[in-house]
Design a protein around this nucleic acid. Structure first.
Lengths: 195, 195
DNA sequence: GTCCATTAGTAGGAAGTCCTAGTATTTTCG
DNA sequence: CGAAAATACTAGGACTTCCTACTAATGGAC
């Protein structure tokens, strides 16, 4: 939210250019802010160009990108005072939920579906902050076991409380929409082979 | 899709750890891949911990993050042979749709809702690739006008064709779900002040 | 008419993602 | 048993994002 809050001046700029560069009747500007949805506008342009069959898919994917940007900004703003990022928070929670309090790097990457080097990166920083420790796996000396420190466990709990109260319980969406969103995205993920 | 396709070995790893680290009856493994949804599992854990009121919001936001990751990977894989990234493609299309074929940096940032330095970065690379040109605005010497070159215009069209046929027309979702997704995300964006 | 606040853009840095290539260890197989 | 293949992790690089700080130019206040 912090970085994405648009100033009045910026909104005016955008509106001005929209008038300059648009063909359709977008100058209505009723409601709050711009008064028109840039993605709806792009969808119209797609149709005008003869790309109708792709218009809905374009709108869906563009909406997804933008929504991700908005939500991630909110999450990061909430975590910032605690000194962690969302990427590192995810690693902490994975460890927090694990029985032994430790997992191999490989498993972390598989669970979060990120590249092995991203795990190395995140664990490096968590280790520097004394939130996790690294040790070689006793039964496979190739593998590294990552374990929560007491400080890491405590931070995971505080971060979760912050996210729960400041973000997850305030979704800016009705309960119906939240469930519908999860349902649709679950089908999307399954279709992509996510699980 | 390329980087996110899970190998059988990785799936086995994940399943193995899931058995080790989970409490619920997740070992069913019916259907394809893992057989259980990590996000649904996380939601259950949220409820078990007494964080029920935040569980749906957590699931929605986590789903959004993951869906974004999947979709972005598909988009980038499609654009890669053309030598552009999605960030730069967005700039090209903004210019392509503009009347004069040129826009000030500021407007690009406002439209895409990214930081000014991100625009500088993208335009730097587009300029290096001779896809756009920079020139000072005739009426405001602080501002830079970014304009498409013929090569940039042509690439924008080829990239759009590729995205339309390979991604936007293949959403891995039913038409009903696509529209529902756009609707819900539109409400989310409006609630966040996006337009 | 000059001075100051605002605005547009850029530079350098931190952090995330991925990729390719490398090392060390384990497993497989002939 | 010993060589080859597979696996786990890390190093360095490219790219994106953001942030803070800076320069140049515009415009308003007095």
């Amino acid at each position: 939210m912090s970085a994405q809050t648009r100033t009045a001046a910026e909104a005016a700029e955008v509106a001005g250019v929209a008038v300059e560069a648009s063909t359709g009747p977008t100058g209505v500007a009723a409601g709050s802010g711009l008064g028109f949805d840039p993605i709806a506008r792009a969808r119209e342009q797609w149709v005008e160009q003869g790309w109708g069959p792709a218009a809905d898919g374009m709108a869906a994917i563009t909406s997804l990108m933008r929504a991700h940007q908005i939500v991630l900004a909110r999450v990061e703003a909430t975590l910032k005072p605690l000194g962690v990022t969302f990427a590192r928070y995810e690693v902490l929670m994975l460890l927090w939920f694990s029985r032994r309090g430790s997992l191999p790097m490989k498993v972390i990457g598989s669970r979060l579906q990120v590249h092995p080097t991203s795990v190395t990166n995140a664990v490096d920083r968590l280790e520097d902050a004394d939130l996790v420790t690294r040790s070689t796996h006793p039964e496979d000396r190739r593998a590294m076991l990552v374990a929560l420190t007491p400080a890491g466990r405590e931070l995971a709990e505080r971060a979760t409380t912050a996210l729960n109260t400041e973000v997850f319980e305030q979704p800016d969406l009705g309960a119906e929409d939240v469930r519908s969103l999860v349902d649709v995205l679950t089908r999307l993920r399954r279709g992509a082979g996510d699980f």
